[in-house]
Amino acid sequence: MALETRIYQKENNIHFLKLLKASAKDLFGSHFLAKQLATRDIKSQYRQSYLGIIWAFIMPVTSALVWIFLNLTGTIKLSDTGVPYPVYAFSGTLIWSIITEAINSPTSSTNAARGIMSKINFPKEALVLSGIYKLLFNSLIKIMLLVVFIFVFGIGFHWSLLLFPFAILAAILFGTTLGLFMTPIGMIYNDIAKIISMSLSFLMYVTPVVYAIPKKGIMKTIMEINPFSALILTSRDLALGTSPDYLGYFCWIFAASVALFFIALLFYRISIPIIVERLSA
């Protein structure tokens, strides 16, 4: 039986495609490990809590409630959204929370595994994958909640609702890719995580999360360029059955995310030894 041979040396001169192949192999080969890590985290999280699953969606729901309250009391004046405002706000905050969670996911999964990363050699792609599994689990709860809202507020069923989960998948992929690029530096400097959470809270205001894109003005331009807008609007349009105006841009973002995801994964893969070195030094 031929034994697998590993060579460790300073150069990273393996061919790009070979590296990609190895990375993809580890990503798909580590399904069991990733699933195990994800179920471990989910189980332990809910076993030590009474409210359990409520925590998965309480944040976006409360922030939507704040906006609904502000709108109903006339404290702020929002332009017409075309659908009942509560559904608009709920769908916006739920989808937005999925994207932000996806951005934070690679860094938090990697950070949580700091201890074992410096001790045991396992496919690190499993951490990314387990992050995605956890996102899928949390998103599933949010999607179900959103479907409940859709029926409660009388929007009713549209065939496009069936496409909505795919739009969410694209949003998760987009967020994870973005997060993956920032993880290596984020592991070295804590500042990165703080900068990300700060910029996301600003970014929300130039994204049609709780209000629609204005008809004209500088804000309209900014919001239309913002890739988050396309993700949120298209997902929401599919869910509520309105016409998806930004579908083209959305498809471009999705295609780019797929390609960039693998590049980000490679960057992650070759960066891990350097991170481990700096963690344990």
Binding site: R6, I7, Y8, Q9, K10, I120, P273, E277
Partner: peptide
Amino acid sequence: NGLINPDAGKITIKG
């Protein structure tokens, strides 16, 4: 164990 990369030299491990 392959956790960090060397700065010089080479390791070959089989199996």
